[in-house]
């Protein structure tokens, strides 16, 4: 335990302490100056429309991505469960996007959705859903871009949801469902009254795990739109990166990071405390 704890202390906790300290200074890295400003950076961040806007967008993005993944994941898990063992080959196909680098997935979806030569709109036009391939500008329409940049993430990790939920479904005792059936419960009733409540902890864990990842989304969005158009797909990770690296304001960026991290910890902690008992209790 000690070496791992030491490792995490040096390479995670120590950078976090540095981050906390930096957030109290105004730093000009090129000039090499550092000035204590107390909570000035925090005030600046909270009063800047960029920070508030991208915090909102991060929340919306996470909400969209996770709820779609949950819905699709649950639907496919139910399909796999109903169809039983013989669906295993198809489960394998379902698994593969999980292995693909987010940067590649983002690039791939940018290519699929790109204006003028993207194949998605071409296919939608051919099957008659769109009048012309130019009808939807997935990545250049500011009103829908936040949804579009989430597509790769949904594609990448719906299978995670699906497999986790499938495993959860397999753990539901068959006798329970059989008994309910004999008592005259139809499929929908069995789902609402037995499957969902029993699945709830699994769903909760899967949603938390995915939520944390989605809220940190960086590379997928960077490669698709770099936060545009009109910064409508700029999430907190992107904003912090740009503030820190491109605009050379580490103090402000650190203050943003601290608030971002705190918000995530609080959200996750609330969720964890209510449904997850860590440690040995799992055995």
């Amino acid at each position: 335990m000690a070496p791992a704890a030491l490792f995490l202390a040096v390479f995670v906790a120590w950078p976090l302490v540095k981050l906390l300290l930096d957030s109290l200074y105004q730093i000009a890295p090129l000039a090499g100056t550092k000035r204590y400003v107390g909570f000035g950076n925090y005030r600046n961040a909270l009063s800047s429309p960029e920070f508030v806007g991208s915090a909102e967008r991060t929340a919306i993005y996470t909400g969209i991505v996770v709820s779609l993944e949950l819905t699709l994941g649950l639907a496919t898990a139910l399909l796999f469960n109903t169809l039983g063992r013989r669906s295993r080959v198809l489960r394998t196909v379902f698994l593969y996007p999980l292995m693909i680098a987010p940067i590649v997935a983002g690039l791939l979806w940018r290519f699929l959705l790109i204006d003028n030569f993207g194949i998605v709109n071409e296919l939608l036009t051919r099957v008659g859903i769109l009048h012309t391939p130019a009808a939807i500008s997935w990545l250049s329409d500011p009103n829908i871009v936040l949804f579009s940049v989430g597509l790769p993430d949904i594609w990448l990790t719906t299978s995670f949801m699906s497999l986790v939920l499938f495993a959860g479904l397999q753990n539901i005792p068959g006798e329970l469902l059989e008994a309910a059936r004999i008592d005259g419960a139809n499929a929908r009733q069995r789902f609402t009254w037995i499957v969902l409540p029993l699945l709830r902890p699994v769903i909760a864990v899967a949603v938390i795990v995915r939520g944390i990842d989605a809220a940190r989304a960086f590379d997928v969005i960077l490669i698709q739109t770099n936060g545009g158009p009109q910064q409508k797909s700029e999430t907190l990770s992107l904003l912090i990166y740009q503030t820190m690296i491109r605009y050379g304001d580490p103090g402000l960026a650190s203050a943003m990071s601290v608030m971002y991290l705190l918000a995530m910890l609080v959200t996750a902690a609330v969720a964890l405390a209510t449904i997850w008992r860590p440690g040995r209790s799992q055995a």
């Binding site: 790109i114 204006d115 003028n116 030569f117 391939p133 500008s137 250049s140 500011p142 158009p229």
Partner: peptide, 21 residues
């Protein structure tokens, strides 16, 4: 202009021209 003006950058413009569009 072809679709997608808001996200058209140098590379996109160049691709369109080289495609004869």
């Amino acid at each position: 202009d072809p679709a997608g003006a808001p996200q058209t950058d140098w590379a996109a413009a160049q691709n369109l021209f080289q495609q004869g569009r």
